[in-house]
């Protein structure tokens, strides 16, 4: 019985040590992507949490926002310090964006999400090709 418990403990230790390494790796990669591209942190951290850390998907989305917020504030500060912020454009986009966020949350239950995802993916591929050439 004692042996069994010991065995169990060492397994838990191993697992939590491994989890910590995974969390550190996920954090660094998410931070680099988010800082380098000014976006995409969520695209990395949500699947990473679900697949590597067994977080439930609906919790992963909400938790990702809390993780990315401080990273975004730091990255924004670096861009700002190097004069890469244009407030004149930014405030207009932000106003439109906040209104859109509200519309999107309402539409979520009405629109077929799968088709939208494919349209959105198509736009990403088209835009990427346009930007490359």
């Amino acid at each position: 019985m004692k042996n069994k418990n010991n065995h169990k403990n060492s397994n838990t230790n191993k697992k939590s040590g491994c989890d910590l390494i995974k969390k550190i790796a996920i954090g660094i990669i998410t931070g680099i992507v988010n800082g380098l591209f000014g976006s995409g942190g969520g695209t990395i951290v949500v699947p990473a949490m679900v697949l590597l850390l067994d977080v439930e998907e609906h919790k992963a989305h909400a938790t990702a926002i809390l993780i990315i917020l401080p990273l975004t504030i730091i990255s924004a500060f670096f861009y700002f310090k190097n004069n890469y912020v244009d407030w004149d454009i930014t405030w207009k986009v932000v106003i439109g964006g906040i209104a859109g966020g509200y519309v999107g949350a309402k539409l979520l239950n009405i629109c077929p999400e799968n088709i939208l995802r494919k349209i959105f993916a198509g736009f990403m591929i088209f835009a990427a090709i346009r930007m490359l050439w």
Binding site: K23, I24, A25, I26, G27, I28, I29, T30, G31, I32, V33, N34, G35, L36, F37, V45, I67, I68, P70, L71, T72, I74, S75, F78, Y79
Partner: peptide, 13 residues
Amino acid sequence: IIIPGIIGAIIGS
């Protein structure tokens, strides 16, 4: 995740 994330954010930016 946040603490290494901040280091990553500094590197990335």
